[in-house]
Design a protein around this nucleic acid. Structure first.
Lengths: 342, 342
DNA sequence: CTGAAAGCGCTTACAG
DNA sequence: CTGAAAGCGCTTACAG
């Protein structure tokens, strides 16, 4: 009545468990007589046998699972990445365990311990904060690691990231072509690699006004409320802006709220560009111009990269590899030429 | 250099592995002399020891993991539920493995096999299709199961669901109070318990027009595109409608597109109500009136229910329990009194 | 080509 | 109060 084990299959097929093991393993089935394999397969099928991957993992010292650490699954940015990872791992029958940190360092340490306890064969880290990798390096127990949507503090660790500078350049150039000269930036947290890279790219690319401080307002978190507040501060400090580039869509949504509450129309009074092309931003009022980054592909690539390391023999580990995926500017209705009267 | 095992800790502390096991297990630590426990703890700490949960699971026949099956993680409806589940399980140190089916029966069977192979102690099923549970009942190997956001075909299986009739009644009554008399319904797939319950509730509650067929259009899936098409069909069939209740927000978003493309204004020409209160629907044009269902709480309750079954001894399993969570009508700008001239 | 044996890292009766 | 032994369900050298 309980789950059948290999011993049950062996009894049913009239062979030793080791023979069952060989018959059911692709790599070793060829060692056996075809009719033996057939006999075992048949017995396994008739009993509804499913190998116990825990037992296998204990013996082979490979759990065939990998851990993925993200800030928050309810942030719509992450699910497509997770799906990409899953699909990449699915090819090789790996399972992913996803853990949320809510950007809480203590919780991050806890989930990391939990994943390691589950004997994950590798780790995908999409948490955004810099530096914590170094701190917990030994806690990671030498596991293969690939970063997703963030860079490491050095390049000894593999990473799959969007090409942030190109994205910001696309946004700024689009606004400049429309005729904007006074463009501001709502920057993301500067302890994240994306927040920093985007702010730097903005400063390098946006038109400068001589003498005045750069129209950049920094937030502590990537969130709507943070966008509301930063946008208000930016408008107070730089009254003449005709366009804003937000470091991500959630910040842009916050900007939208502030602009609306101040009676400023988008795009007539202020143009607005987001980053990420989150679900439903095409249905906002107005539909948001933003940068699409291929989240699913990012997850897939990261999963593939990790698999390559996990499956390589210990003595021929591939070196760290970094991949940059190109963003695409999606022009919608939140950007337009500045109104002359403004 | 490799991960320390219990044997390493035993050596370090100068005791037997069984003593280490007892010292590190809350339930058995009291059997030992306090200073022995302290000695072991200290050794474990100094080595950075993490118990191997695979080995433990093999021995105790409890993996301390549960499987959760959902249609699609990128549907924003599910992540909050998953977080609720995780938080419920976290209390007892359980881990959840999430698997997506994309509503593909073949994929569903595959992920179920995979989860069972991972020796999950229980299963949370949030896939929407009816009947497939009976079909795979034996495949489930007698595992404890709790359904989320769907009912079973009979009530022998526990379930946590929104109170669909109450939700639809709130929506219909809201529209009737505004003065609407010709209200249509975009129904979800009729092979899902939510789709069916909502359509039935609508038919029972909405004002009837004598002689004419009920203004209900059914979709095959819960998706934006399905909403676009069903809305078009409904408008063609029932030209005089002044309000539409959609079976979920994605269908409502599809309606919004169709209405807009036909030059019908929302809410001036047609009022629209969704279901679920997905993220960002408050930012649509216009902000969507919808029914909020407590997704996080639904997940938490389901996780708790499952834990109760998983942790109960085999001979005193609690009977199946069903929970209905009450939806709340969130009135935004997509509903208004019908325009007299319409 | 197949079987018998050892062992992965734990837990838990059983002794003492 | 603690140790020695058996065993969870697999895999894989080692024999034959």
């Amino acid at each position: 009545m309980s789950k059948p084990t290999m011993a049950d299959v062996a009894r049913e097929a009239g062979v030793d468990v080791s023979t069952v093991s060989r018959a059911l393993n692709e790599r070793t089935a060829s060692l056996l007589r075809p009719e033996t394999v057939e006999k075992v397969m048949e017995a396994a099928r008739s009993l509804g046998y499913r190998p116990n991957v825990l037992a296998r993992g204990l013996r082979t010292r490979r759990s065939h699972t990998i851990g993925m650490v993200i800030p928050d699954l309810t942030n719509p940015f992450f699910p497509p990445i997770v799906r990409g990872v899953e699909d990449a791992l699915d090819d090789e029958q790996y399972t992913v365990i996803v853990a949320n940190t809510d950007n809480d360092p203590e919780r991050e340490a806890r989930v990391l311990r939990s994943l390691i306890g589950h004997q994950v064969d590798g780790l995908l880290l999409a948490t955004s904060h810099l530096d914590d990798l170094g701190a917990s390096a030994d806690a990671l127990a030498g596991l293969p690691v690939v970063l997703v949507n963030r860079r490491g503090s050095d390049d000894r660790v593999s990473a799959v990231v969007p090409n942030d500078p190109v994205g910001i350049e696309l946004a700024v150039d689009h606004l400049v072509e429309l005729g904007h000269t006074r463009i501001g930036h709502i920057a993301g947290p500067q302890d994240t690699s994306t927040g920093r890279a985007r702010a730097e790219a903005f400063l390098a690319r946006a038109p400068r006004e001589r003498g005045s401080p750069p129209p950049v307002e920094t937030t502590d978190v990537y969130g709507t409320q943070a966008g509301v507040e930063a946008c208000a501060a930016l408008l107070d400090r730089c009254p003449g802006l005709t366009a804003i580039v937000a470091a991500n869509d959630q910040l842009a949504v916050g900007c939208l709220r502030t602009l609306r509450s101040r009676g400023l129309r988008v795009p007539e009074d202020v143009s607005l560009v987001g980053f990420n092309d989150m679900p439903m931003v095409d249905l906002l009022d107005p539909p948001l111009t933003t940068l699409r980054i291929p989240q699913y592909e990012m997850g897939r690539a990261a999963g593939r990269l990790l698999l390559d390391r996990v499956q390589a023999p210990r003595d021929e580990q591939p070196g760290p590899r970094s991949l940059e995926l190109e963003p695409e500017l999606i022009v919608r209705a939140s950007t337009a030429a500045p109104t002359p009267s403004a």
